[in-house]
Design a binder for these strands. Structure first.
Lengths: 158, 158
DNA sequence: TTGCAAAGTTAGGTGCGGCTAACTATATTA
DNA sequence: TAATATAGTTAGCCGCACCTAACTTTGCAA
């Protein structure tokens, strides 16, 4: 109970549903053309994807109409967005990666990592920021470590 | 100089090249059937992939013959394997994820993350194990944090 | 050596995810 | 309201990555 049945989504359909979710949160409604622009695909590809999402019960879509997500779709989208945000935060705040690269990597990795790993990453972000509050700044510590790493344990090039 | 031109490989071909690399390191030579077993694909799919890898100059392949990698192929494979190992280590040693899940996640994520992020992850692993040598055990610290996390900053469910 | 099982290939098919070009519907505006 | 620009769809195509079934090659045992 409380556990809705998971719908298997391809990486591509995850991208579409995520784009729709974001567009709806920006302008109440998603238009086909905007989705195409976000994802850098043709308008006709969007039409095809929308039909699939409708078939799976994830998107409210009628030809020539605006697009929104169903409750199930919103749930699925929220999960993907959550993964995305956690990954981006992790890359930025923990690893100190530059923002746009973090964004980019998050986009690609969000389809590959399951909930367990994502949960751990979130925990790690919290762990690091908790550590930031006392005198010991873990993130800074790592930055310093990167700038001046201890010598390698010898051996040939790796 | 020193910088060989990168060959773009699909996730699927990366899997094949990685499997061949590992098989060669286990038994000097890779056979089509073994590759198929490792990757859970049919023998005919392997034939197709081998032709592609040969075309790209990555595998030494003649019909009905054994399979090895070219120098370029070995280089490409080594990079993928490196990504795999770093990811697996990170999931296990830093995040404390169970070994087989770490292995699994590494398989999927290795195709999605670029060298910059991978390098940072490696640095982070080193950072954590360096921290393990003094009295302060970062990995243990995180484990404890996971078992007994501080209360959330209030607010509605997230 | 023949003769058969196992390994490998070929032929042909599927689904996905993308594309362009041409068409249709909708919106705008003169 | 009629003309046109823009948005969306359809038709038809391509490449990738897989599959099964049937065929060929190879290697091993009788």
């Amino acid at each position: 109970m409380g556990k809705a049945k998971r719908i298997e989504l391809s990486a591509s359909l995850e991208d579409y549903i995520e784009a729709i979710f974001n567009l709806v949160h920006e302008s109440k409604v998603a238009r086909s053309k905007e989705i195409a622009q976000r994802l850098n695909v043709s308008r006709s590809s969007v039409t095809g994807a929308l039909r699939l999402l409708k078939d799976k019960g994830l998107a409210n879509y009628e030809p020539y109409g605006y697009v929104t997500l169903t409750d199930t779709g919103r749930l699925a989208a929220a999960e993907i967005v959550k993964k995305h945000n956690i990954l981006k935060s992790f890359f930025e705040k923990v690893l100190g990666v530059e923002s746009s690269l973090a964004q980019d990597a998050a986009c690609r990795a969000e389809h590959a990592l399951g909930t367990e790993i994502i949960a751990r990453l979130l925990a790690y972000i919290r762990f690091v920021s908790a550590n930031n509050k006392n005198g010991y700044h873990l993130a800074d510590e790592f930055r310093r470590f990167c700038e001046n790493p201890p010598p390698e344990p010898a051996g040939p090039r790796n």
